[in-house]
């Protein structure tokens, strides 16, 4: 089993490296010249040549890629074209803000979704199950910004209980921060809970239909003991997968929510950079998002390996 886990870790590093090539090289091979893009169509050839020199675009691609990678390894993501500021500094505290948002949403959504999934299975085909089902089908179909603006309209404009926009800054206490981000967190929870719950329910039902669950019934065990003792260990791997998948989704989901709530996180940073074509910032943010995503998927796989008795006790 350790070999399997080490293999999975190595695969993640390979993926991460390959995605860095994709992020850096992909932009290179796409048509369109940076300098022209940067200065606009009306720029003089001399201005373009100057800016290419200034940005270092005259060096070969491979050299620039290696320089970029070496910089990142030392925590240096280069400088923004738009502001001239080092990217790492901005990225650092914006990443912190984004993670705060995602973590707060996860802490609420994961137990709630898994719990509701279990409730739906226990009351299978009864009113409560159907209700949860219909609501979740609706929730997976709603765009994030629709939920967000609906919440703002109701909870800020009509009944002013929550804060908008969700501006947080260094001097705030944790409680103040949490109050400020209540609405974006609520939006994220609503967006990912339905999907997570449906998948949890499906994973559990799958386990419940196995012959060994009938064995548990025919041993005279109570339904609750059968579900919690016999079904849960087997449902764990799929549920862990569901959770990790949705956490990865959360990390991406922050992009839209941050824009709606004018929240100073990494998502908004990236969207602003894309709008003005500030490529070094786009690349840096893209790489960080990809790294988080790859890491979460890896954690899910490693946990699945750890909870699988066949892999824990090979023949």
């Amino acid at each position: 089993m350790p070999a399997r886990i080490i293999g999975r870790l190595l695969l993640s590093f390979v993926l991460l490296w390959a995605s860095s090539v994709l992020i850096f090289g992909g932009i290179e091979v796409l048509p369109g010249d940076f300098a022209t893009t940067y200065l606009g169509q009306s720029a003089t050839p001399q201005a373009i040549a100057n800016i290419r020199l200034e940005l270092g675009l005259d060096r070969p691609v491979v050299t620039r890629y290696l320089g970029w990678l070496a910089g990142i390894a030392q925590g240096d993501f280069g400088r923004s074209w738009a502001s001239g500021q080092p990217i790492a500094e901005q990225l650092g505290h914006r990443l912190g803000n984004s993670l705060l948002l995602a973590a707060a949403a996860a802490v609420i959504a994961v137990p709630l979704a898994v719990g509701l999934g279990i409730v739906a299975v226990i009351f299978r085909d009864r009113l409560i199950d159907r209700l949860i089902n219909i609501l979740s089908l609706a929730a997976v179909s709603l765009p994030e910004f629709f939920i967000a603006y609906l919440l703002i309209l109701v909870l800020v404009v009509q009944h002013p209980v929550a804060a908008f926009p969700a501006t947080i800054y260094g001097g705030m206490s944790l409680f103040e921060k949490l109050h400020t981000i209540a609405l974006p967190v609520a939006t994220l929870v609503l967006v990912c809970i339905a999907h997570m719950m449906r998948m949890t329910r499906a994973a559990l039902l799958n386990v419940l239909s196995t012959p060994y669950m009938e064995t548990a019934t025919l041993k005279g065990l109570s339904r609750l003991r059968a579900i919690f003792v016999h079904a849960t260990p087997n449902a764990l791997a799929p549920i862990i997968n569901v959770v990790a998948l949705n956490l990865a989704y959360l990390v991406v989901g922050v992009v839209v929510v941050e824009v709606v709530f004018v929240y100073p996180g990494m998502g908004q940073y990236m969207v602003d950079a894309v709008t003005v074509r500030d490529l070094p910032v786009v690349q840096a943010c893209g790489l960080v998002f990809a790294a988080i995503y790859i890491a979460l998927n890896m954690i899910a796989d490693v946990l699945s390996i750890l909870v699988n008795p066949r892999l824990r006790h090979p023949r």
């Binding site: 064995t215 025919l218 005279g220 065990l221 016999h230 087997n234």
Partner: peptide, 23 residues
């Protein structure tokens, strides 16, 4: 429940599927 697994027991066709793989 008091009867199942105490006074009457069951042996399934496929034991491979009828045993819980986690225990």
């Amino acid at each position: 429940r008091g009867i199942r697994g105490a006074r009457v027991c069951y042996v399934a066709q496929s034991a491979a599927a009828a045993f819980n793989p986690a225990f």
